[in-house]
Amino acid sequence: MTIWEMLAVFAAGVGAGTINTIVGSGTLITFPVLVATGLPPVTATVSNALGLIPGSISGAIGYRAELTGQRRRILRLSTAAAAGGLGGAILLLLLPSTAFETIVPVLVALALVLVLLQPRISRAVQRHRDREGTPGNPDGGPLLITGLFLASIYGGYFTAAQGIIYLSLMGMLLHDTMQRLNAVKNVLAAVVNSIAALFFLFVAHFDWTAVLLIAVGSTIGGQIGAKVGRRLPPAALRAVIIVVGTLAIIQLVARR
C-alpha cells in the first residue's frame, strides 16, 4: 500500500466513523477505497469490520448522555444483534467469493433505497401512532428483536447501511426521540462489529495496515460525528451517502 493509498484509507476511516455515528453507511466509504487499493472484496470487508470497531465504540461514548435510562432496552437488543452478527460473519466465509461479489452490489442498492425511504416511513408510522393513539412498545417486542436479528446477520456479512436499517426498525417500533434511538444504534453497531471481528481474528484473512488506519480514523470520526450529529441537516448527509453508495455500486459492477 503506497503512502497515498494509506492516506486515502485513513481519510475514509474518518469519514466512515463520522457518518456511522450520525446515521450509518460509513462502509459505503471505506469499502470501495479498500477495494481500490487492491484488496479482494472479502478481505476488504473483514479488514473494514475490524477497523470500524473503535469508531463504533467512540461514537457510542460520544452519545453516552442519550443512553441514560436505556439499559434494559440495550441489553435485550444487543443479545439479538450479537447472535445475528456472528451468523453473518459465518455466512461471509462460507459463501464463495464469487457469490459475495454478486450479492454486495444488490445489498448496497437496497441500502440506498432504504436511505431514501426512511424519512417517509418514519413519518407514516408516526402519523399512524398519532391517529390510533397507541404508543410503541418501550422495548419493541418480539417483532423488533426478530428484525434486529435479521439486520445484524446482514451487518455481520456486510456492514454498509446497517445503522440505517437499525434506525428504521427502531423508529417504526419504538416511541422515543431519534437522538436516543441513534445512541442505541451506535451500541448495536459496536456489538455486531466486535462479535464479527472476534470471529474473523481466528478464521479469516485481513490486512493489518488497513485495519489500523481505519481504526485510528474511525475513532476520530466517531467523536466528530457525535459533536455534529445534531447540527448536520439529514438531507445533506443522505445525499452524501447516496452519491458514495452509487459510486461503490459502479466500482463493484465494473470489477466483475
Rank of each mutant, 00 (worst) to 15 (best):
R127P: 04
G26Y: 12
L181D: 12
I61A: 13
L201G: 06
R72C: 13
G171E: 00
V184A: 12
V192D: 06
G222N: 04
V35T: 15
D139C: 02
I90T: 05
A161I: 01
V243N: 15
D139E: 13
A82T: 04
L39E: 00
I121M: 04
S78D: 02
T18V: 14
V253Q: 05
L52W: 01
A239G: 05
F10H: 03
V191Y: 06
A124P: 08
V106F: 02
R255I: 10
T102D: 08
I164F: 05
M170V: 08
P96H: 02
H175D: 15
A189V: 14
A236G: 04
V104H: 00
L67K: 04
I3D: 14
L252G: 05
G171V: 05
I195P: 10
N193Q: 13
I22N: 03
V228T: 15
E101V: 01
G59W: 08
G15V: 09
A99I: 06
G62A: 11
L167W: 01
M6N: 11
S168P: 08
N20A: 08
L237F: 00
T2G: 14
D130N: 00
P41S: 10
L52Q: 05
P234Q: 15
P142S: 10
A161E: 02
I241N: 11
P40Y: 12
Y154I: 14
T18P: 01
A189C: 14
A161C: 03
V184E: 11
P40F: 14
A215I: 11
A226K: 14
